[in-house]
Amino acid sequence: MRLSAPIYQLKRRAKLLSREDNIPLHEAQDRIAREEGFTTWSLLSTRLAMSKLDISLLPRLEEGDMLLLGARPGHGKTKLGLQLLLDAAREGRRTVFFTLEYTEREAMERIRSLDDEVPANTPEVVTSDEISADFIVQHLSGAPRGTVAVIDYLQILDQQRSKPSLSNQMKVLQAFAHSSGVILGFISQIDRSFDPERAPVPGLIDIRLPNPIPAGIFSKACFLHAGEVRIQHIG
C-alpha cells in the first residue's frame, strides 16, 4: 500500500486543512483520504494498519511473559496475535489459541489466510465456553517451556459471573506463566474514549475493563492504531 506521503504528514495536512477551511477534523481527514484513493480516513487507516503489520513479536518475548495486544477493532490486534502463534509454531513450539470470538473453522481460516505455508504443527484452537484462568491452566498443564498461547480476548474472562473476578484470574495466569515458562498473550479491546489526536496509539489507560486488574500483571505490551505500532516493557 503506497501513500503520497507518510501517515504523519497526511495527519498534519488534515489538521492544517481543518483550520484553513474551518471544517471539522474528521471531515478534513476524509477529504485527504479521498485524495489517496479511499472513501474515508477510517478505511485508509485500517488498510494501512493491516499492510504494515509485518513485525515479529516472538523474538521480543521471553519465557513466562504476559503480553498485552491492544487496539480498536480493525487495526490488526488479532492478526498480530495469530502471527505470533504461527511464528512460534514454525520454531516447533506448542501453540494454542483460546477464543470465544471465532468458531474453530473461522479461526483456522484466519490462520491460513496469513501465510500460504502454514506449519505442520498448526496452532491448536480452543473454543470451549468454559474458557477461564483455571481452564487455561489445566489445558496447558505440562506444556513445554516456551509454549505460546493467545487468549482472544482479555475481556471474555470477565463475562461470566460464575467465574472468579478478572483480577483473581489474571493473578492465577501470571503465577502460572512465571512458574511454567509459558508465554501468554491477551488480545484486548480498547475503550471508545481513546482519542488518536491525544496520542498516536492507545496505552494501558485505554484498556477497556469493566473491572480493574492489578498493576504489573503484564510484562510487555503492544499497542496498534492506524499503522502505528508501539511495543513496550512494563514494570
Rank of each mutant, 00 (worst) to 15 (best):
F176T: 06
H225V: 07
P212A: 15
V126I: 14
G92Q: 00
L85R: 00
H26L: 08
F176I: 02
R105I: 12
H233M: 14
R145E: 12
V125M: 06
V201Q: 04
Y8N: 13
R31L: 08
L3D: 04
A221L: 03
K220F: 00
S141A: 14
S188P: 11
A88D: 00
N168Y: 10
L10V: 05
H233V: 12
I7V: 09
Q160H: 14
D129Y: 07
L154V: 04
R198P: 05
E106G: 03
A215N: 11
K79P: 02
E20Q: 12
L157N: 10
L57Y: 02
R230N: 12
Q9R: 14
P214N: 15
R60G: 03
T103R: 01
D195E: 10
C222I: 13
I136E: 02
L25A: 04
H233N: 14
F176H: 04
L3Q: 03
I231R: 07
D21I: 00
L85H: 00
L173P: 09
S56H: 15
L140H: 04
G185E: 06
R110D: 09
D54I: 13
Q29L: 13
P202N: 09
L10E: 06
F176R: 04
T39I: 07
I183F: 08
F186K: 05
S188W: 11
S179M: 14
R192G: 01
G146E: 03
Y8T: 12
D115T: 14
F186C: 03
L184G: 12
E228A: 13
